[in-house]
Structures are given as C-alpha cells and as structure tokens.
Nucleic acid binder design. Sequence first.
DNA 1: CCTACCGATCGGTAGG
DNA 2: CCTACCGATCGGTAGG
Lengths: 203, 203
Amino acid sequence: MPRIGRKEQILEKASQLFRSKGYHGTTIRDISEASGILSGSLYAHIDSKEDLLFEITDRGADLFLKSLRPIVDGDEDPVTKLRQAMVAHVRVIADNLEAATVFFHEWKALTRERRACIQVKRDEYEDLWGRLLDEGEQKGSFHLEDEKFARLLILSAMNGLYQWYNPQGAQSPEEVAERFAAILLAGLDSGKGGDSGDGGRTP
Amino acid sequence: MPRIGRKEQILEKASQLFRSKGYHGTTIRDISEASGILSGSLYAHIDSKEDLLFEITDRGADLFLKSLRPIVDGDEDPVTKLRQAMVAHVRVIADNLEAATVFFHEWKALTRERRACIQVKRDEYEDLWGRLLDEGEQKGSFHLEDEKFARLLILSAMNGLYQWYNPQGAQSPEEVAERFAAILLAGLDSGKGGDSGDGGRTP
DNA sequence: CCTACCGATCGGTAGG
DNA sequence: CCTACCGATCGGTAGG
C-alpha cells in the first residue's frame, strides 16, 4: 500500500539522480533503490520513467512562471521590476537547485508532446521577460540596443547559477541576485544616451 | 579497411548526436547508422563509446585553452585582453557549436579518470580568466567587487551562447562578442570610481 | 568493414 | 509493495 507522501519522496530522489547522472543515465532501479523499494514497486506510483521527468520539469516551469508573472503585471517602475524579476529568478534556482538543474539540462529528453508542453511554458517565460524589458524601454527607464540580446544575456548569466551556487555557502539568494542586478543593469544601460532614466552617470 | 578521415567523420556524427540526444541517449547503433556502417564495424575505429565522448570533450577543452592562453600571456593592456578573451571564447563556441555543447553538457557522463582529466583542463581555463581579471585589478584598469563572481558571470553569460546562437543568423561571432564585451565591461566596472572601489555611488 | 552473435541490463508487467 | 519475470535493446566481440 502506498505511503502518503511517497510520490513526493520519489520525485525528490529522481530529481537528485537526474541531476547527477542525467535522465538517460539514471535507471528505474537507481530510483527505486534510492527510494527504498524494488523496481517493480515503483510502478504503483508512476506510469513510466518519463512521467517523473515530466513532473519535475513541469513543476520547475511553473515555479518560474508563478514567481515572475505578478512582478511583470505589477505597478512598480520598470527598473524596480527588473530588479525584482532577477531576485525572483535567482530565488527559484537557489531554492530548487535539483529541479532547476533538471529543468535546464534534461527537458529535451522528453518525447514530442511533453517536450512541446514544456516548450510552451519556456516561451511564455521568455515573453514575460520581453514584456518587462519592452516596458522599461518604452517608458524610457532604460535603453537597450538589442532587446533580445539583452534578454538572452540576462537569462544566461543567471541560469549559470545552477552550476556553481552553493546553498551552504555564504551568499544568500538575495545577495547573489542584487549583484547580478547591479552589474547587469549598469551594463545594459551603459549604451544609452538620455534625457531620462539615468541621472547622468554616463560620462 | 578503414577509410582515411573516417575517424573524423565518426567523431562529427557522434558530436551531432550527443548534442541532440545526449551521450546516454545516443546508442552505438545511432552513431554507426549516421556514419553509414554497421554497429560492429564501428569498433574498427574506436575502442569504446566513451572514447568518442572523451575525444570530443578533450578537444573542446584544448580549443578553449589554446585560444585563451596567448591572450593572457600577451602584452596588451588588461581591458584589451579582456575584450580579446571574450572574442576568443565566443569564437570557439560559435565555430564549434556541436563540440562546445557536448563539452558543456556531457562531460560529466565520463567515468572517473577521464572526467578528472577534463576537470583539470576546466580548472586551468578558469585560472587563466582569474589571472586576466587579477591583472586588470592590480593595474587599476578595472575594479571588481568580487573577482570570482565576475568570472562566473562572464563565463555563464557567454556560455549561454551555445543554446541560442545560430551560425546561419545575421550576427557574426565578432559582433556577438563585442556586444558581450560592451555590456559586461560597462557593468562590471560600474562600481568603480577613481582611486578605489566605489566612487560614491553607495549612499 | 560485414556476419553473426552474446551476456547484461533496460523499462515495464502480471499476479498476488 | 514484493516475487518473478519478459521482450527489447544495449555496448561490445569473434572470425572472417
């Protein structure tokens, strides 16, 4: 008889294993062993190995979306929003290192339909960032030479986090996010020239 | 009888497959089929599947090292060196998209000894970047609040390239690299002010 | 480089 | 959740 909370436990073990060995490098027997049951018994909780990968990546996608949407839809000024968005993104990664790593690294191992489902959410997430940057541009809060390039650079820089962030280390997610924000905001905004939004820091 | 150049052809097919399906998701039969021979025949050219992964990642590591070392050891001023290093890094990725992707994504699938060998080269590469940043700091060319953070941000931002760069697209590696350099140099250096560290931006 | 093959392991199932 | 098992496929080999 399945214990309650067992499914969550299995998902956590699977996340850890997918992270360290990859989806295809992890066997059903690895997961069942880590969960303290035999491989056949795993199928009382799941229908297939891919189910596990899908649940992990889909939840990951939802975490990113849920944390960013209220910020983009909010009423703060664009620079504040951008800073908040970076903090939110870093938090999701730092607080869910395993799931985030699997989300970034293994989602392409999904078969067609489920991969498409995750792709939709990834596109949604990038669109939210696009709207955020567009708004700042239109309101004159900052000036980007190339919005898409800026978006990709921001996300790439922050996504690298999952490869080196140590939750036991000295830096809190907020500290890390503030550093990202300080560097990226200054860098992205340096090419501007403006009547608005910069306060004359540019020479 | 093995054709000449056959090994290179196999390595290229393996790179493409490892990139799209992952190392563990690619079978010996996938590789042999793509190479136009039967699976057993592959072993006239290689000793094991892992050999292919090792050769690809090891060559990738050497490409990065070979392109960065002369720059770090050169005589240019630190800002120029930093810019050149970014161009070099972007070039290696843009000119070797498959190998670079496999290098970033799959090297952990190597078994212990070979993974350690790649790890050494990765450390070497990061050290070269560290030396480059240290030199700029010491000579007062730029001022970083946290050198390690700066290094990780630079490399993360640029490494994201392999996920979105399109060789058939409009942007040349040089253009991309110059954009990175412009944004990152401005951002990383924004905290400076004349003689020390922050220049009064701090309240 | 092909033919023919092998032991091991894979994801998954039936019945309890 | 266990026992017992299965067909398919895996990386790799022997002999030519």
